[in-house]
Amino acid sequence: MKQVIAARTDLGMGQGKLAAQVAHASLSAYEDTDPKTRKAWKGGGQKKVVVKVAGEDALFELAEAARVKGLPNAIIRDAGHTQLDSGTATTVAVGPGDAEQVDDITGHLSLY
């Protein structure tokens, strides 16, 4: 079991902003999972990997690929209170789910 969170590199988010957006994505996708998946992921250490994507289109492509495979996913849009404009898509979480299925979607991306 694993979860991958992809974050945009083109926005110039500060470290704190990046951490918050990744956390939002992780929790949002987790909340969309069934109880069995939640238990398995939590029992296995809640593996998370953060990767880079170049722009907004890449976020939506990953979310669609996850949807097609039946994996939980969540795109996060910023509220606009600090560094970014309201509604800016910043991150997408894929999973938690079977590590092989998650890797099929995200395995080509570089670590953040």
Rank of each mutant, 00 (worst) to 15 (best):
V4M: 14
V4P: 15
I5Y: 15
A6V: 12
A7F: 15
R8M: 12
L11I: 01
G12L: 07
Q15E: 12
L18I: 09
A19I: 00
A19G: 08
V22A: 15
H24V: 02
A25V: 05
A29C: 13
D32G: 13
T33Q: 10
D34E: 15
K36L: 11
K36S: 09
R38Y: 04
K39F: 11
G44S: 00
G45V: 05
G45P: 03
K48F: 07
V50P: 08
V51K: 15
V51L: 13
A54W: 13
E56S: 07
E56W: 09
D57E: 12
L59K: 08
L59S: 07
L62A: 10
A63S: 15
K69C: 08
K69L: 14
G70W: 06
A74Y: 06
I75Y: 14
I76W: 01
I76G: 09
A79V: 03
T82V: 06
Q83K: 08
T88W: 00
T90P: 12
T91H: 12
V92R: 14
V92L: 15
G95I: 14
P96H: 04
P96V: 03
G97C: 07
D98P: 03
A99M: 05
V102E: 10
D103C: 05
D103K: 12
D104N: 06
H108E: 01
L111N: 08
Y112P: 02
